[in-house]
Amino acid sequence: MRFLAFITLAALCACGRPPQPPEQASADTTAAALDSAALYPPAEPVERLLVATTTSLYDSGLWAYLEPMFEEEYGVELDILYAGTGKALEWGQRGDVDVLVVHDRAREEQFLADGFGVSRTPFAYNYFVIVGPSADPDSIRGMQPESALAAIHSAETTPFVSRGDESGTHAQEKRLWAAAGYDYDEVQQAGDWYVEAGTGMGPTLVMADEMGAYTLSDIATFLSYQGDIDLEVLVDQGDAMRNVYAVIPVTAARDSAMAANMVTFLTSPEVQQVIGDYCTAEYGRQLFTPAAGQDL
């Protein structure tokens, strides 16, 4: 009897479909409970397209705009997963997602060369920036990115928070260390000031803020976090800091035509316009520069 009470309780919640009609909740016989739990009704519409996007794009909130537009135009349920570029590529390799939206050209080209991706189409870019506390203890403001990293490294006092998650931003950071003349393995071992967060762009910014640290960020994520954190943009120049987002349909996609639609969608004039306008009024500058058709 005591069990039955729990099972009935469970039956009330066993549906899992969020907006639950009351008549469904009243199906409280044990049989119904067992049935719904064992089969777990296929609530998903059959058509769903899984897109793995970089955390920087996800945290900027752009997908919340694009998702309903795509769903309406192509009549498909779009599921957005966020992960660093490294993890997104891994999902693509396993065929767990249908489309990748990532930002690390070298690894993207390798991914294509290995036969895991159909094509690589750049559709937008912005810039990486080095942000830090406004007091700027290592005086890096206005420097070239390579000199800024060198200054942070030689001071060894102010923490530098690295994404440390094999994301596109992490790859960019490694490129900058190399350009500054450092061996990355040595940087990782350099001391307590070098902090590997192992997490997304947003959490990394929050962590850097808490620690009064420097970090490398894309400008879009930084601007969308600006109100909540006290960090400032200190270094924002050089072509070396360009951050290009590209879309790659996965070879193993469940529905390759639908996956290809994402390329058409992101490079279409209307969506390019939306991307270029996204939050421009709010921040007084462009978060993403449309780049369809450019070789980046």
């Binding site: 069990f3 099972i7 309780l9 469970a10 039956a11 919640c13 066993a14 549906c15 899992g16 479909r17 969020p18 907006p19 639950q20 409970a33 067992l34 719904s36 739990a37 064992a38 777990y40």
Partner: peptide, 21 residues
């Protein structure tokens, strides 16, 4: 908030129920 809560209850209750069985 309601949606996430109902979904979470559904998932955990289903898992518990299956585990009971």
């Amino acid at each position: 908030v309601v949606e996430v809560t109902l979904r979470t209850l559904g998932i955990s209750a289903s898992a518990t129920l299956l585990a009971c069985l």
